[in-house]
């Protein structure tokens, strides 16, 4: 038994050494996205370098997958069906962790990089989102609702999948460009970079992006949420005032 271990030890060491994680240095073009007047969305550049464990030369044959994920939210997803000639919300599903934004970019189609199981574990792909439905829901129905959500969010530009969105240059540097549309939710976004080799995730690293309203927009949103009475009064005064001023101005004409 002991001798067996002694023989195995160098082999194990070799294996472990071979699987030693490469160094992944991720960076993002901006860690703060400020939503203020004139905001029409943002272009984020997620880039970085991947080096072999020694840090001396380029790592070999890695695939890179980048995932930018917005804050998750609890939602009700409703489905319309035709009832008595009109389309009404007929079925619904409650999802506890639907990302408000999800973008995935890869150097090759994710299907070619990893198998289904790995993809499911790391949420690699829009069909792999872990939405945490509430209550006992059968898988077929769950799939149906998940597909509906992804389709809807994709057309709103809030879910994105780009099979060739990551470019790797010189086996060292990688970069991916990901667009945030103007209707993104504010909050902390996580950008996770995965280095994958032979179907296995070797290493991953996370950076954060803070999306927040600033200046006037921040003020307005805070007042509307926390100071409804004053905000409402202000809205009323503005609308009455503008109507009155317009009446006065046109009376002069």
């Amino acid at each position: 038994m002991k001798r067996g271990l002694a023989i195995l030890a160098p082999l194990l060491l070799l294996l472990l050494g071979g699987a030693r994680a490469p160094i992944l240095v991720p960076e993002i073009s901006q860690h703060k996205v400020e939503v203020r007047q004139g905001f029409t969305g943002a272009d984020l550049l997620l880039f970085g370098a991947i080096l072999d464990p020694g840090g001396t030369r380029a790592a070999q044959d890695y695939d890179i997958v980048v995932v930018l994920k917005g804050p998750v939210q609890s939602i009700v997803l409703r489905e319309k069906r035709k009832v008595a000639g009109i389309w009404v919300n007929a079925a619904s599903s409650e999802l506890r962790s639907a990302p408000s934004y999800f973008a995935i970019a890869a150097s090759r189609p994710v299907r070619e990089i990893v198998d289904d199981k790995t993809a499911a574990i790391y949420e690699l792909g829009l069909d792999r989102l872990q939405l945490s439905p509430i209550g006992a829901i059968d898988p077929v129905r769950q799939r149906h609702f998940a597909d509906g959500l992804v389709d809807l969010m994709q057309r709103q530009g809030l879910y994105r999948e780009d099979d060739h969105g990551v470019t790797i240059s010189g086996q060292v540097l990688y970069q991916a460009r990901i667009t945030l549309p103007s209707q993104v939710r504010t909050g902390t976004y996580t950008a996770e970079t995965f280095a994958i080799r032979q179907g296995r995730v070797i290493t991953s690293a996370v950076t954060r992006v803070d999306v927040s309203k600033q200046g006037f927009e921040r003020f307005v949103a805070n007042q509307a949420d926390g100071n409804g009475l004053l905000y409402g009064l202000f809205a009323v005064v503005v609308s009455v005032g503008m109507g009155w001023i317009a009446g006065r101005l046109f009376a002069l004409v």
């Binding site: 905000y231 409402g232 503008m242």
Partner: peptide, 29 residues
């Protein structure tokens, strides 16, 4: 109604309302 929405749904967008108002008060005249 504006007050009620401001207090319950928090859905009054003052920027949106302002833009609409600029158009509508002059359109009304």
């Amino acid at each position: 109604t504006t007050m009620m929405h401001a207090l319950t749904t928090h859905a009054v967008d003052i920027v949106l309302a302002g833009l609409l108002l600029v158009g509508s008060v002059s359109g009304a005249q």
